[in-house]
């Protein structure tokens, strides 16, 4: 139990992942689902970046008089992976929001269950 408190960054990251996951699964509103997806991704990026942090060292930014001794800086690789992840998350959010707009204009509801009910009603009547 003390390990959960001494690694508080990772604990909060997993809690954010769980909160985002539950919002994605249980909320019926599409806009809230998309926000839950983003929160879930933020939790994962926090976990990844906290793997690279070393207590007491500086950011890996060099200048003219900075030394290139690697023991003065934190691990820079996880930061690069998080950048890729953030870009992917933005494009995914953009596509899902455009799908939501199209669905709302067609069915006038933001509730995914009702949309599928309307679709199956239309299919059973026509076709």
């Amino acid at each position: 139990m003390e390990k959960l408190f001494s690694n508080y960054m990772e604990t909060v990251a997993i809690l954010l992942f769980a909160i985002g996951f539950l919002i994605l699964l249980f909320n019926r509103n599409l806009i809230k689902k998309i926000m839950g997806l983003n929160i879930m991704d933020s939790g994962m990026y926090l976990l990844l970046a906290s793997l690279g942090y070393i207590d007491g060292r500086l950011a890996p930014v060099g200048g003219i008089n900075q030394s290139s001794d690697p023991s003065l800086y934190i691990n820079p690789i996880p930061a690069g992976l998080v950048l890729t992840g953030i870009v992917v998350s933005v494009s995914v959010t953009a596509i899902m929001l455009s799908l939501t707009v199209r669905l709302y204009k067609r069915y006038h509801t933001l509730n995914l269950d009702e949309i599928f009910k309307l679709i199956h009603q239309n299919e059973d009547e026509g076709n």
């Binding site: 942090y53 500086l58 950011a59 934190i74 933005v90 959010t93």
Partner: peptide, 23 residues
Amino acid sequence: VLESPDLAITEAAVGAGVTSVLF
């Protein structure tokens, strides 16, 4: 606070900027 200034700039521009404007 986690000593990654590039991530902070990206998150401020993307999360609080682009994504919220899209919403």
